[in-house]
Design a protein around this nucleic acid. Structure first.
Lengths: 197, 197
DNA sequence: GTCTATACGGCGATAGAC
DNA sequence: GTCTATCGCCGTATAGAC
């Protein structure tokens, strides 16, 4: 592992664990066993290092979710797949939601400029599909923007509240994952029942 | 206005505007026209000052929402009222969601200990009501924990994503508020259609 | 290119004089 | 209650050795 990789590796762990502000560059350097000033040699600032890591973390997952949303498959099947894959991804990376929300709040302009955001929150084809299904009489008329936001909210918000949910229900990690996995079907049914004409 | 009030007044504005980490105690002191060390005289730390402000900000709103959730009124009416009042409150305090999520992520133990949390996320009576309605055959069988989480997600998450929603749809502030207000009915219909036996 | 050493101004917090 | 002085840590920048 070279120096650059060591920095990214250590910084990723720390950023996810403690967030941007509570992680110091000295701590990253120490964990990576490198000199502090190498951080500024490889990445000009802590902020740039952070952005690099966001792209690495979210990039692949976001792209594959976007593919599902844009695919030409049956609407019900798409909602089911999207919800399932999204939740699977978040179970593997439970800190991602808080992470993205923290960035969004810290520095909205920056996140909006990242390529990753396009994949995370673009719905053009999905909106068209919803409109088409309405014209065919298969579903009732919905605002696609609102419907997609509902889907995103039902999938993501529980991860932002993870600590509270675990504490309130006295869940173990496994119980939380099971609770979240149960949501796949619940979210699907919630969204589908709303669409019924 | 005495020194303590001046500190709270200035700190509230700054914390809401820029968040905890990006607000320095020197800035709060300067805005309040007091000496820096007075901050540590009245509140032992920046963290404690922050907690004090959270309680002040959320306390009243949370209690009145809890009252609705616990009231002995028709289920549909309750969901409608709760959603409506919650969204009205968040439109008046749009930064509150990000604020609470940031605290929850920064220091989960601390938020969980705050009295405010009880009011924000306790559902005992509401769960009983859902179970009773099921036994009466009025709704289908639901997991009350999941159902309440759905309600909370649909209400709150859009405020955490506010910047992204505004940017994506090129909303003005008024358009965002209108978009959110439209959600009252959409959320109500989504939740109710899921409950149908 | 890679790395060490060191310096700068700003931060949260505190001890102690008044 | 209020203020001054100061402490140790922070992110960042840079001079210079290899």
């Amino acid at each position: 592992m070279n120096t650059q990789e060591k920095i990214i590796e250590s910084a990723t762990v720390l950023f996810l664990e403690k967030g941007f502000d509570r992680t110091s560059v000295r701590e990253i350097a120490s964990k990576a066993n490198i000199n502090i000033s190498l951080m500024n040699y490889y990445f000009r600032s802590k902020e740039i290092l952070f952005e690099t890591i966001i792209d690495l973390l979210i990039g692949k997952a976001a792209a594959s979710l976007k593919d599902i949303l844009d695919a030409e498959i049956d609407l019900n099947e798409k909602i089911s797949q999207y919800t399932g894959k999204y939740i699977d991804m978040l179970i593997r990376n439970p800190l991602l939601v808080s992470f993205v929300l923290a960035v969004l709040n810290r520095n909205p302009e920056k996140l909006i400029k990242l390529k990753v955001t396009d994949n995370l929150y673009t719905t053009k084809k999905f909106s068209q599909q919803l409109n088409n299904e309405y014209l065919k009489g298969n579903i009732k008329k919905v605002d696609p923007e609102q419907f997609y936001l509902n889907m995103l909210s039902l999938i993501s918000f529980p991860f932002a509240m993870k600590h509270l949910i675990i504490e309130k229900n006295q869940f173990s990690q496994e119980e939380f994952d099971r609770f979240i996995t149960e949501r796949k079907e619940i979210i699907y049914n919630t969204l589908i029942s709303y669409l019924k004409p």
